[in-house]
Nucleic acid binder design. Sequence first.
DNA 1: CGGGGCTCCTGTGCGC
DNA 2: TGCGCACAGGAGCCCC
Length: 267
Amino acid sequence: MPELPEVETIRRDLEKVVIGKKIEKIELLDHKLIRGIKPELFIKEVEKTIINRILRRGKYLIFVLSNGEFLVFHLKLTGQLIYGSADRRSRIIFHFKDNCMNFLDLRRFAELRLSNDWTKEKGIVGMGPEPFDRDFTLEKFQYMLSKKKTKIKPLLMDQNFLAGVGNIYAQEALFRIGVHPERLTNKLRPEEIKNLYQAIKDVLNEAIKYRGSSVDAYVDTQGRKGQMETRLRVYGRGGQPCINCKTPLKEIKLGGRGTTFCPQCQK
DNA sequence: CGGGGCTCCTGTGCGC
DNA sequence: TGCGCACAGGAGCCCC
């Protein structure tokens, strides 16, 4: 499941190899991943354009094209962008003069849109602040939380609240500060809010440093796994002993999503 | 506005 | 050993 760190890792890797390249030809092997535009038109619009920049917003990856349009990718659960080696599982192949980029997706939830203004796209309009933006201050986070009275863990995963955090890093951040995932936001103490603010940034930074977590299908643009998975303290460890106190980690459902925490350390 | 449930899709992993 | 089925999960959408 690519979250902010995984998408950012892909963005940085791709930036090194596709900026300035012309998309000579597109092989559209699975039409389903293209949303909101007829496949023929999509190909017509995008072929022969040059990739000028690659941006990220939350879990979205945005290619700035030379024709003024934008390719907007969301990898969802199992989307992958692999550079340079043709793959029989490819669903869309972007051919450059001397190489290619493959868009793969096992479960076909991923999507690719062509946009005139990526900031207006559904899912991006109304998105919460970027965790690493300068204007995402502790004061702002405190204010954002003061407007809510909901369980903290699902809220952290809400893209309209905060961009880029998903199921893995929401759980990890809460474990690090000893807060139960079902705690109500209006019951968080000022000290806990401060710790949470820092823990979110810390865990995302650490995950970027270790090139993401390869749970489910995530791999980088060369098909390599991330190194963050082994550093995760609660995610996917239900029933195993807590690394701090050895209490078996508990697994519950929150908003339909698996959630693991330590019943001893997280109150 | 918020929470619950459903939907998309397919490989995995369980029970028998 | 093999079959069949429930399940997971990001995010939009509908409903109450």
